[in-house]
């Protein structure tokens, strides 16, 4: 899933950074805001579940269907096998997870 930025910028307060420099600290890595971190993890997990390209290019789900993800299995069953309904059912298994992401993302966007 290319280019789906979760948030455009993680704000690190530059003053906090400078202060630590004055006090002799070399580098300080500001911890990601908790909510944002959870969101990024959730987001990348779901879009890994929903990935199609990498599996399709590397293994096409093979050998003997051992490396399928939802999308590649749905493609094999639904389009190549011609069983469209069953394919759609397979790909809809992503939906509950996706709904969760949408819920949290919306809450996050509203907060901003």
């Amino acid at each position: 899933m290319p280019h789906r930025p979760v948030s455009s910028a993680v704000w690190v307060d530059i003053e906090v950074f400078r202060e630590s420099r004055y006090e002799g600290g070399e580098v300080m890595i500001h911890p990601l805001p908790d909510l944002e971190l959870r969101l990024v993890i959730l987001f990348s997990t779901v879009f890994t579940f929903a990935d199609f390209n990498i599996v399709q290019v590397l293994t096409r789900g093979g050998p003997i269907n051992t490396t399928h993800l939802f999308a590649t299995l749905a493609y094999q069953v639904g389009l190549q096998g011609g069983n469209l309904g069953q394919g759609a059912a397979i790909s809809l298994f992503i939906f509950p997870l996706l709904a969760l992401v949408v819920f949290f993302q919306l809450r996050y966007v509203r907060q901003e």
Binding site: M1, F47, A50, D51, F52, F70, A71, A74, Y75, G78, L79, L84, G87, A88, S91, L92, I94, F95, L98, V101, V102, Q105, L106, V109
Partner: peptide
């Protein structure tokens, strides 16, 4: 909000119906 939600739905879910 609706646009934001459509933006979050991956092609994985859509390619069968769209085909």
């Amino acid at each position: 909000t609706a646009i934001f939600i459509t933006y979050l739905v991956p092609p994985t879910l859509l390619f069968l119906p769209l085909s």
